[in-house]
Design a protein around this nucleic acid. Sequence first.
DNA 1: ATGTCATCGCGTCGATGA
Length: 263
Amino acid sequence: MKIACWNVNSVNARLPNVLDWLSRARPDVVCLQELKCEAHKFPSEEIEALGYNCLIHGQKSYNGVAILSKFPIEEERRALPFGDEESDEQSRYLESIISLPNGTAMRVICVYCPNGNPIDTPKFDYKLAWMDRLRNHVTNLLKFEEPMVICGDWNIIPRAEDCFDPKAWENDALFHPKSRQKWHELLNLGLTDAFMALDARGHQYTFWDYQGGAWPRNNGIHIDTLLLSPQAADKVRAIKIWRDEREAVKASDHVPVSADFEV
DNA sequence: ATGTCATCGCGTCGATGA
């Protein structure tokens, strides 16, 4: 089975690209970030027509996450615990249980981590606190010892070789030592980064800014990936960054990332 | 630093976020 992750930067502005890619890639499960719309404006009919069940956590203008599944899907929660009301106003988290054809189940989680810029503002504090809340929750989920996949736009550049020009990111929330520390704390719970397990090359970007000719210069960053519980890591077989999608007309600034699992 | 894009509002562009 194929599970994918894609920040679409407005699902309605991107609808032709999304439908086209779903038809070609035929993923079984897709986690979408940055819907930029409320649930009632999500293009459910068009996506259902391709055989997907849609679980949507929308928000007007900003954020918004969804999980598409060809298999039966049930919502587990749509907010991280350990938070305050202000944090939960932002639609950045969606957790589901998907029933697979072989009779087993998989927990699939879609996350859109806060950007956090500029640093030295409450936005950066919010990013760090959000990562703490996620780590606390994942700590509990790992106790189930079940297949679990967390797909995300993590808004964190893990390594210097995950960007074109590390110097340009020195004072950015995506590459700040505190952000990367949160990333390591999360992974050190026992999660496997699917890209690092199966590829691990540097300069395999998933995002290129619209500004400054970043795409033609290949000035990108690697910030989208799938994190796996040990039981999911046992089953992962391949990872793919759909780089060519960045070349499309009206492309998102992120490209899809997919992982193939045995069964 | 900025060769951009998307949304909203009571608007026909500016503010905002990325």
